[in-house]
Design a protein around this nucleic acid. Sequence first.
DNA 1: CCGTAAAATTTTAACGTGTGCATAAATTTA
DNA 2: TAAATTTATGCACACGTTAAAATTTTACGG
Lengths: 334, 334
Amino acid sequence: MAPTIKDIAKLANVSHTTVSRALNNSPLIKEVTRKKIAEIAAQVGYVPNYNAKSLVMQRSYTIGLFFTSIAKGTSSGFFSDTIRGVNSVIDVEYNLFIRGIDDYAEYSSIHRKRFDGIILMSQSEADNKFIYHVVQQGIPIVVLNRQIDDRSIINIISNDREGAYNAGKHLIEAGHQDIAIIEGVEGFKSTQERRDGFIKALIEYNIPARNDYMISGNYDMQSGYEAMVQLLDLEKPPTAVFCSNDDMAIGAMKTVFERGLQVPNDVSIVGFDDSGFSLFANPSLTTVKRPIEKISEQGARKLLSLIKEPIENDVLISIDTEFIARESVRKLQK
Amino acid sequence: MAPTIKDIAKLANVSHTTVSRALNNSPLIKEVTRKKIAEIAAQVGYVPNYNAKSLVMQRSYTIGLFFTSIAKGTSSGFFSDTIRGVNSVIDVEYNLFIRGIDDYAEYSSIHRKRFDGIILMSQSEADNKFIYHVVQQGIPIVVLNRQIDDRSIINIISNDREGAYNAGKHLIEAGHQDIAIIEGVEGFKSTQERRDGFIKALIEYNIPARNDYMISGNYDMQSGYEAMVQLLDLEKPPTAVFCSNDDMAIGAMKTVFERGLQVPNDVSIVGFDDSGFSLFANPSLTTVKRPIEKISEQGARKLLSLIKEPIENDVLISIDTEFIARESVRKLQK
DNA sequence: CCGTAAAATTTTAACGTGTGCATAAATTTA
DNA sequence: TAAATTTATGCACACGTTAAAATTTTACGG
């Protein structure tokens, strides 16, 4: 049905070998024959069979984009920004394959023949097993978003620690002393990094970290809501709260309003991520912009060059966050 | 490197054909040999080469999930809900391939050999060209979210018209007479359906539709914001606004607050979609839940059965929306 | 224990493409 | 003009798998 190089060969009165070479711009082919063949190919609407090609070339023309999980724990904005970033870089000659690691019971179907390269948007330490498997299979990989100890792996992360530090600093310099933190999913590297950055700011300004001002959440709105309930129930509630992401900040704001209180007049709130709605929240949310789309673009580019030139190595790229001051923080007079 | 059926054949002292049959559970193979071969295969860690398989089977083991566009016009929640829905149904033996139609300059690379089936989350009439191509290639396809006239195509949509009708009715029954609508992207079927449903409610209650109460937006927050500016600048601003999606509703609420007005006290607002943040908005957003995840699950299932049994046809499944009353609508006393 | 049907397996070919080697044609050199 | 070299093309095989045809082995009735 669909024309093959052999069909073209017949039409052009040459061997299929010549056709193959002509279409791949081999220097062994005379210019006139190449042109003739290209013309015929275009005319009959030839498209290469990638399965045959892959079989003989030992390449798959497939880039795998993996998440820790697609089903849960990944916020929509994060998820779609990642795909957008990668998609914008990966040429259509590649298949863009998307799955969650937790969709797999075992990894045997993930091997060299099936993936030219893998981009992992990693959120959890538990991904290490997957990474190990991929490396062992000799598949080029780029890990995004979570720092990997193995320095032979290309690693692109955002500087969450510094971002959280800036958030904390901003609150302190606005005059706040009683500052709480609502944390992300336990075990996620980002959770830890953001906590560390936040605490660094406290230490730098000699503000004691109180245990009851550190509430753990899980990055979703509901958990932010619940965490804030705990905080407002304290004998001495904080005047400001750093939420480890915007979703939880939105949830936390909800609690504040339900208590008949105001943001930022009664409680100041800072988020993290700068997700789509943070600008349109009421009040608009002061937050730390995390350049997810940039990270994934960058990651995709690195992967492509890694596939072409496998020597590259020892790369850790840290992309800076950006502090965005909006309306959810109140300046206290001292 | 990686073991093939021939390697296994040698180890088992049989021909590679026997191995192939044994691993595919052909009834032509004696039980004992099957077992022996299965054992060896497991032991050497055999995984089939899908390129070779595809080449001879004329199947790709790839499901294509296409969007109208990945880069723009698709909200995060919508995008990720779709992928989640499909992902939950498609077995890992399939490649899940994701792209936007607008990533392609021409469709020649989209053909039967490369896709066992295609799921299209369609938002625009402009997709018809793509659909036509796919159908012409003989690729099984399921179109989601937008009604297609061609009844030979499996089509799964949400009943947006009825949802919008319910939204309008709710506002009217709460006592509102001056009701505006902020519309979605022009040319999107959903835009038209929601407008139609809304107007139907107006007509049913004998409320004249005013031209200056119909503002066009483009489904993003910013456009909702701007549309609401127009509405509030009117000599007689509406007391209620139906926004064609939640994103625009959030934008519209922002405008209201900036004017020093209240939702719902001064203006009532209804959205559409029930996206993640609508419950946590302040006030929480009354909206119409559109079951995107359900639609995509259902669509994926239909596609799988269509691939197996190509006789099925003339299917139009309409999934009902659900009206969700929350806090953004005020009951007027008459 | 032979002949034959059924069952189990092997042999051969095919899917569509790329590549090493041989060879024919064109060009240069002597 | 013949020999040496370069250039252009074709032949045959390989990639890993399934399927059709051919063959061998097993089972069974007389």
